[in-house]
Design a protein around this nucleic acid. Structure first.
Lengths: 147, 147
DNA sequence: TGACAAAAGAGAATTATTATCCTTCAATAG
DNA sequence: CTATTGAAGGATAATAATTCTCTTTTGTCA
């Protein structure tokens, strides 16, 4: 955290107070906040900050690899009428979802119990990568291995 | 599929032509479409259908258990500054995300290769259920087991 | 068949996100 | 240490996805 300035420099990003506070808000929690929640948090320290700045820096940080999106498919609801057990492969480029039969990975099972009070209903694997169509059309190998 | 009318009756839902076509569009694909894509598909057969009708029925079907959302967290972007390997527990009620250490499930590994041309970058488990806070506040057991 | 509740259609409203435009600031050279 | 310049921030408009509201139509059941 104290090295945020150095990390920015290494990534070719300008260091700004806003960026430091935004990143600190994110790195200081495991609550997987929304941009709005980050904004509320940061506003305590920088009341004049703009929501647009928060969004812009979230994108910048994500592209730089400082952050990850929990939900790659958040842009729009995606539906599945297949109620059988199966896993999903999500293409990080085109956001297509490909079914992976459960037997290809197997059912997921917990080696340790969930935290006290948690009730598990279902477990699925989410495989992230590049689908054949996107991979076929470009320099994917380098991108994939640089991740 | 031919039994859609009967399934509606069993679920206490009125059978309408719109519902049948919407459900058929969803059950007939493994492409995990968006509501918009369903709308476009259904419009070919029912040009006068309203997008609102598609949304309403998607909700109705989801509540009835005929459909599932692929992405429970689609309402808004959620961020994670923890770049280490770990899994996620998502509460279906409050949409909170709780980190699950990788060792509690283990790394996911494929028993079968992905379809030709697919490039895997990362794999995470998504556990779905009810968090302690939500479970503590209500009749969760019945809801959970009825799923 | 008739009554009533539920569903459909149309379009307004809301929410999340992105884009635009102008001002300010961080990085670097001198 | 200051001037220059391109990147970043702030304000706000625009867009996209989704939900809501209201009126009309249609299933369901007596």
């Amino acid at each position: 955290m104290e090295h945020f300035r150095a990390r920015c420099a290494a990534l070719g990003l300008a260091y700004t107070h806003q960026r430091m506070v935004i990143y600190r808000a994110l790195a200081g929690t495991d609550a997987h906040p929304t941009p709005e929640a980050v904004y509320e948090q940061v506003k305590r320290e920088i009341p004049a900050i703009s929501l647009g700045t928060v969004y812009k820096n979230i994108h910048t940080f994500t592209e730089a690899g400082l952050l990850r999106e929990v939900n790659l498919l958040h842009e729009s609801l995606r539906l599945d009428a297949n109620l059988g057990n199966h896993h999903h492969f999500v293409c990080v480029r085109c956001k297509s979802v490909t079914d992976i039969p459960e037997r290809d990975i197997g059912p997921l099972h917990l080696r340790q119990p969930l935290p006290e009070g948690y009730v598990l209903q279902r477990a699925v694997a989410e495989l992230l990568g590049v689908c054949a169509r996107c991979a076929g059309s470009e320099d994917v190998i380098s991108t994939a291995s640089s991740q």
